[in-house]
Design a protein around this nucleic acid. Structure first.
Lengths: 156, 156
DNA sequence: GCCTTATTGTTAACATGTTAAATAATAGCT
DNA sequence: AGCTATTATTTAACATGTTAACAATAAGGC
């Protein structure tokens, strides 16, 4: 353990937070990019983006959901979601209509074409994830997920 | 709970990769957003983005750096970096000039105005990070960083 | 019922992410 | 030297992230 340093002992780097390579934001970014790097080429072959995949996958999981709930589940900001919904609807992968009980809400539902994407992409996605899990270690993935969740909910 | 029929019931669950809330890509995204949520308001007050902060911070750490090295250290793709460099140079926070030994390379250096940003933002950033580290646990941050690094380098 | 406030979703404007292609300069080979 | 391949950076085009402002509807108090 090093003793506390007085300001005069500090070098030019003293103003800096800490080493860039050991910072949580960049480490999280690098890990995420590494993971997505395994999925992206496959998704690209199916002409779908990561976020579009998240949306239709959640619709397949949860049935009809409104935009707010989707934004929450897919972790996509409302303005991005608006554009993604427009794109997916134009491509016929999902349908969209107003909630009869609350005119503000927009209900989303997966369309048959969207279910076909699920059927095509799902198994490939699962295979990639399984391989990743095996290589990293199933137990450690669980531990990591718990640690990440705790980090994400620190301020609650 | 309603008994509305969801698409999930139409086919075997095996079509879907797994539950969305326990997936590494989203967990990493949520954790990262939670962390950045602590920094962003402060950075915004200093009229600087997260990526711009990474760039000038690395220049303060490492002195003259060429664009490729910067892209690598800051984990920013080349096209994004081109735009960020242009913006930072226009604002006078960094300088940019061609490498005399290799005309392809662009050397970046922090400018006095950039050093003032370092002096202003650095301590605030460090304080936020320290608080985060304390609340999460210093030891566990180290463990998490190691696990993330291993995940990021799985394919090497 | 009317007014104020809160909620939901969209639009706008700008910054970055992502892939592919273009440009410019160097390195390597003959 | 001259030709070709490789490398560094930029540009282009589109998708998403981010904040602020806006429009439409709903909820609640009076």
């Amino acid at each position: 353990m090093s003793r506390a340093k007085t300001p005069t002992e500090l070098g030019p780097d003293a103003l800096l937070p800490h080493n860039t390579r050991r910072s949580l934001p960049i480490a999280l970014l690098r890990a995420r990019e590494a993971v997505m790097g395994h999925f992206r080429p496959m998704l690209a072959r199916h002409e779908i983006t990561e976020q579009q995949w998240r949306v239709i996958r959640i619709l397949a999981e949860s049935g009809k959901v409104d935009a707010s709930e989707m934004a929450d589940k897919a972790f996509i900001l409302a303005p991005s979601l608006t554009r993604i919904i427009r794109s997916l609807e134009e491509r016929g992968l999902i349908t969209k209509h107003k909630d009869a009980d609350d005119g503000r809400r927009v209900l989303l539902e997966i369309a048959p074409a969207g279910m076909r994407v699920i059927a095509d992409v799902g198994p490939e996605s699962r295979a990639i994830y399984d391989q990743l899990e095996t290589r990293y270690g199933r137990e450690r993935v669980e531990v990591l997920l718990d640690m990440l969740d705790e980090l994400a909910t620190l301020g609650d």
